[in-house]
Design a protein around this nucleic acid. Sequence first.
DNA 1: GCCATGGCTAGTA
DNA 2: GCCATGGCTAGTA
Length: 111
Amino acid sequence: MEDFTERVVKLLKEVPAGTVASYGQIARLAGNPRAARQVARILHSMSRKHGIPWHRIVNAKGEIVIRDGEAAFEQEERLREEGVPVIGGKRVDMGHYRWEPGNDELPPPPY
DNA sequence: GCCATGGCTAGTA
DNA sequence: GCCATGGCTAGTA
């Protein structure tokens, strides 16, 4: 596994229950602000093997953006079980539920 | 709603 | 080539 992917996987596992993060947020924390789509690809193909809490990742607006309807519903369900309200079955309030990483997760200088 | 963006798995043969 | 993005703008009301 390449460096960037490794960092993303590690970060994803650290997102706590009861919070959400965005694709771009994880990409920034992993050191590449423009690699949001890679985060999506990693979630799509590696969540199962690595036990990643994939349901805690939404887009920048807080929306559930999974294409597969069944999986989208599962994501909504899981978030609610963790105490995260999903407005209209689609959107999480990022103002209240966005994960705020601790200092140990912040990217290294110069950032 | 358009379009620039980028790292590289999983699964098959 | 694939992908579950993001952010900026034109154009409407």
